[in-house]
């Protein structure tokens, strides 16, 4: 990895917040600055952009992504079984 700008947003919006042209421009500027300033591989910079300043909301989106809840374990296993079965019985379809 040559250079990496880490934008600490929920996955899906690495270039800035939806419908926020200022934030998107700011993220791009950080990207361009990193392109100019990095001198070694794996140079990683964290964007100054913040998704939310509300503590509970900040915790929530981080915790909820791919969350494993004890009460969902049976359903998760069933989903995995169904997926493996579907992929095994559909030859030729990409996995």
């Amino acid at each position: 990895m040559p250079r990496f700008l880490f934008v600490d947003y929920p996955l899906g919006n690495p270039c800035g917040r939806p419908d926020d042209v200022e934030d998107q421009a700011a993220v791009l500027e950080e990207t361009l600055t990193l392109l100019e300033s990095a001198t070694a591989p794996r140079t990683t910079v964290q964007s100054a952009s913040v998704w939310t300043t509300e503590p509970a909301a900040d915790i929530a989106w981080r915790a909820n992504y791919m969350e494993i809840r004890p009460e969902n374990l049976d359903d998760m296993r069933a989903w995995g079984d169904a997926r493996r079965t579907a992929q095994a019985t559909a030859p030729g379809r990409p996995r």
Partner: peptide
Amino acid sequence: DKDATHTDDVAT
């Protein structure tokens, strides 16, 4: 993250 956001704005 389909719960926290969307990708309707391609600029994101």
